[in-house]
Computed example of a mutant assay.
Amino acid sequence: MTQQDDRWLAGAYVDPEVYTLRPDYRALLILADDLVPGPSDDASEKLLRSAEERAVPDHPHVEAWRDAFRAFGAKPQRTRPSVDALLRRVPQGLPRVDRLTDAYNAISVEHAIPIGGEDVDRYHGPLRLVRANGSEPFDTIVDGQPAVEHPAAGEMVWRDDDGVTCRRWNWRQCLRTRIGSTTTRAVFVLDALAPMTDAALAAAGDALAEALRATSPGVRLTPRTLGAGPG
């Protein structure tokens, strides 16, 4: 990692208002350099099949995330935490998107933890989790066309200087920073609440690191944990 990468990762933060709502919240950030993008392949297929076999649909960590969504006004039946949405797709088969997205989706399902992946080169300013004021732009697709939406006031959002990168904590990513066919540098965000322990969060991070090395053998990884929770 370069000094610039280190400074960018060090600049990431969680606003204190998030901890007021959920003092048990922790985020494990993993900055990855020298990734190998591309379509789904044998390595990512192996990861997804393993996740489908080991998935636990009614995991207590998923219910904790449903409670967190309700606490800031979201309805988890309509806008589900990302891991909840993935687990519901297991009986029909997880989506095959691309080798990097497949890797983190597989670990998300296997460890029952929301995980997002973002292209670092498309960021402007530090990554931070805040409660929205409602004016922040969020670029997305509506009815098949590019559109700009705005979060509800009080909604939990990840953002940078240009706008929202992920709405409702881990519900939906924007177009601008999502991983694509040219992504070689990315940040992966692993979201944890009680009852997930720090040890379980670390284990999920280790599993993601192993999955990224399986799809990108030369990848360089730098982790950073935000927040403090039960051991």
Rank of each mutant, 00 (worst) to 15 (best):
T2G: 00
Q3A: 06
D6L: 04
W8N: 09
L9R: 09
A10P: 09
A10M: 09
A10G: 12
Y13L: 12
V14N: 10
P16N: 05
E17F: 01
Y19H: 08
Y19E: 07
T20F: 07
L21E: 08
P23S: 15
D24C: 02
Y25P: 01
Y25N: 08
R26E: 10
I30L: 12
V36F: 02
P37L: 15
G38K: 14
S40D: 14
D41I: 03
D41Q: 03
A43C: 04
E45I: 05
L48H: 04
A51E: 06
E52F: 09
R54C: 11
A55T: 03
A55N: 06
P57K: 13
H59F: 08
P60T: 07
V62F: 12
A64R: 10
W65A: 14
W65R: 13
R66L: 05
R66I: 03
D67S: 08
A68G: 14
A68R: 15
G73N: 09
G73P: 03
P76W: 03
Q77G: 00
Q77D: 00
R78I: 01
R78Q: 02
T79K: 09
T79G: 03
T79P: 00
T79N: 11
R80H: 06
R80T: 06
P81L: 15
L87K: 09
R88H: 08
R89D: 07
V90I: 13
G93P: 02
L94M: 10
L94C: 07
L94K: 10
R96P: 09
V97E: 05
V97N: 04
R99S: 06
R99F: 06
L100P: 08
D102N: 04
D102R: 02
Y104C: 05
I107S: 04
H111T: 06
A112S: 10
P114F: 11
P114L: 12
I115N: 14
G116C: 11
D119P: 11
D119Y: 09
D119W: 14
R122V: 07
V130W: 00
N133F: 02
N133G: 07
G134A: 07
S135Y: 02
P137Q: 04
F138A: 01
D143N: 13
P146K: 04
A147P: 00
V148G: 01
E149M: 02
P151T: 06
P151Y: 09
P151H: 04
A152K: 03
A153Q: 12
G154W: 04
M156V: 06
V157W: 08
V157E: 04
W158M: 12
D160W: 08
D162K: 13
D162L: 15
C166T: 03
C166Q: 01
C166A: 05
R167L: 12
R167W: 11
R168P: 03
W171L: 09
Q173D: 15
C174L: 10
R176Y: 14
T177C: 13
S181H: 15
T183H: 13
T184G: 01
V187Q: 01
D191C: 14
A192C: 10
A194T: 14
M196T: 12
D198I: 02
A200L: 07
A200T: 03
L201E: 11
A202G: 07
G205V: 03
D206F: 00
L208K: 01
A209E: 08
A211Q: 05
R213I: 09
A214P: 06
T215Q: 07
S216F: 13
T222V: 13
P223S: 14
T225W: 06
G227T: 04
G227Y: 06
P230M: 15
